[in-house]
Design a protein around this nucleic acid. Structure first.
Lengths: 185, 185
DNA sequence: TGGTTGTTTCAGAATGTTTTGAAACCAACG
DNA sequence: CGTTGGTTTCAAAACATTCTGAAACAACCA
């Protein structure tokens, strides 16, 4: 066995380990294990793969592969490609970790924070205004309003933050992060 | 019916809605729905409650309440209190949204990012070094190393960021957030 | 000590999520 | 058209998580 073959085996082993540990994080990112694994695979191998290759490598069913891949495409962290003379669809992972991260945050803000914000506004509007009643009751209502507002302000700040640094143009986040961590002591 | 009673009912309704929508976010924060609801309840009512009150209000079993409360205490976002002349334990939520957020991030970094980082370091060390073999193979190994390193760097940056702004002393995060969002245009 | 009150544990039940595999679908090509 | 190569869908099965309720435990008090 040549050095190449030997290395290749270790490489594949390392890739598999990467895939597995990435899969464990799945829950944390709000995606299913398979989704995470598929993404990890595409990221760490760094080359486009088609559905069958992914199925084989991860030992999953066609249906599962299809679903997971589609979801990843929806999230915007992998993209479709094609190979000349091959009718199959190929998929490749965004190779820029920061832009990957931006996609994830963007998507989660959209799916989780935005709806929550909307609901909280509704609740605030439907909450009784502290305009009458006994002093004690008024005090309660005011405190209630204050707590709602604090939460709203917090979430809005987060949203603005994310829009600014995560979403559209660029590397704002990375720069900022490095800047901020750089401010040592 | 007096204005107070009327208001009180609406207030309770608003609280329930808050609890419910907070509960929906549960998955997102990596905690169970009940945990989220219990926390929401304590936060929005703003007063210490004991296990029985929480059970009754959320319509959950004693076991579930006990588990969820304990977990919240472990996360550091609610704390035990006592009432004079009452043997029951009471619990109250951190009323500062930012410090709450810091606790959550701290805990999740500890539980999710730190172990992942450790594993990735291991994987990197076990990956074959590109010291011999054909050029093409070397190229592959180098690319693999590069991808691992990028991910490691990213996660380490995140960790440093979180340690700096989230963890120990203070309001670093809030300040930073306001600062950053303030930098408009 | 025995009784009373309050808390934790845990096996099994209920519920929710993910995966499979086969069938339906779709587009291109001869 | 009808066949081929490929992708998507979806009901049922496997799996995982969460919840219940009753029993065990612990602390306090008379």
């Amino acid at each position: 066995m040549g050095a190449d073959a030997e290395h290749m085996q270790k490489l594949i082993e390392a890739q598999d380990r990467f895939v597995a540990s990435w899969g464990q994080m799945a829950g944390a990112w709000g995606i299913s294990r398979t989704m995470a694994e598929a993404h990890a695979l595409l990221y760490i191998t760094g080359r486009p793969m088609n559905t069958d290759e992914i199925m084989d490598r991860l030992q999953i069913s066609r249906g599962n592969a299809s679903m997971s891949i589609r979801a990843l495409v929806d999230w915007g962290i992998i993209s479709r490609t094609h190979k000349r003379g091959d009718r199959k669809e190929y998929f490749e992972a965004d190779q820029d970790v920061w832009s990957m991260f931006r996609s994830i945050v963007r998507e989660r803000m959209k799916r989780e924070v935005e709806p929550l914000l909307a609901t909280l506004f509704e609740i605030r509007d439907a909450s009784p205004a502290p305009d009458e009643g006994s002093d004690a009751a008024q005090e309660d209502l005011l405190a209630h309003q204050r707590r709602l507002d604090e939460m709203l302000t917090f979430l809005q700040t987060m949203e603005r933050l994310s829009h600014r640094f995560i979403s559209p143009s660029g590397s704002g986040l990375e720069l900022a992060a490095q800047l901020l961590t750089g401010l040592d002591r």
